[in-house]
Design a protein around this nucleic acid. Structure first.
Lengths: 173, 173
DNA sequence: CGATATTTGATATGGTCCATAACAATTATC
DNA sequence: GATAATTGTTATGGACCATATCAAATATCG
């Protein structure tokens, strides 16, 4: 050990004003200094991501769609006729973990697995009619409640610049 | 069910060219179209965050520090004499989950819990000498290997703009 | 052709992170 | 001094992520 146990506060300071934290300026617990933390991109990136996901979930509460589920619906709509492996891998989801996710969407009749006639191992993925309808509503909610709020916070131009830089990091880092 | 089971590909097309996917242009599995996904800030944000954390871990492999551990060391260095509740809460870590994190840092002699004399319930947190030394090396690694690579990818000005926008989202969203 | 290897969806399993309830010790409050 | 609140801690469960493994189906190659 390099530090003596049972010490207290800033040493070299046997003063009286800061003893027991009972000054007249009490009440607030004196917010901590973030210091270099607020300059760490990873830290800020993570916090921002949590906030965005949190807001996304609130906006989608009526449809009960998580970001991952929404991304699956979007990708299946854009790429109908693909199998689980293809959809999962382009989303960065491992096949085993994709099974339960799909089970959920299928049990809610948003998505369907269809045994392919070409390759009877694979399951072709398609949106059901209900899935298409829900996705349409989801897109509207995201646009009007979610992304729009980001626009008014950052401004249209900044939001696009942000997206471009994040894409660069996601793809070229 | 709204879709007929055992279908295949784009219907209304009993053609021959796209049957069995055995054209002359075979080989590549024909990359999927991301479509609107690449415009979803949450999606891109998450992917970027994963990439940044991944790179952070690689850069810190020699010191065996995770982003969370690094943030704790940074915060304790900047705010010595605070207790676990204060450090954990400003990092968005729940007290129960902070215990094991601290146990790890303390077992490696990077950080120490000191029973406060003011409030004998709380544990004051301080960096050990080894903790300070490791943190110094960690900062250098982050600066030279991690953040520098972001700079050359985005450019100094863009990196600062990115940080500012992410901070705005993290704090005001 | 037929033996072997590969692929696909699936299960089981373990790890990490996150969230809640509950507890003993200590302190604050009235 | 009785009651309430706080601190660190444990236990626990859920969500997410990663690996190994499997049966069925297909591909490969002698």
């Amino acid at each position: 050990m390099t530090v003596s146990k049972t010490a207290e506060k800033s040493s070299e300071k046997p003063s009286d004003a800061t003893k027991g934290r009972k000054d007249a300026t009490e009440g607030l617990p004196e917010a901590l200094q973030l210091g270099e933390l607020s300059e760490q991109l990873g830290y800020v990136l993570k916090r921002a991501q949590l906030k965005v996901f949190e807001n996304f979930l609130r906006c989608m509460a009526s449809l009960q769609l998580t970001p991952a589920q929404f991304s699956v619906l979007l990708l299946v709509e854009k790429n109908p006729g693909r199998n689980q492996t293809e959809i999962a891998s382009t989303l960065g989801i491992l096949r085993p973990n994709f099974v339960a996710l799909l089970d959920n969407l299928e049990s809610r009749d948003l998505c369907a697995r269809i045994r392919s006639t070409n390759d009877r191992r694979s399951h072709i993925l398609v949106l059901t009619d209900k899935g298409k309808a829900v996705l349409t509503r989801a897109k509207k909610l995201v646009a009007t409640k979610h992304e729009s709020r980001l626009n008014e916070l950052l401004g249209q131009a900044n939001r696009e610049a942000l997206l471009e830089m994040l894409s660069k990091i996601a793809n070229e880092f």
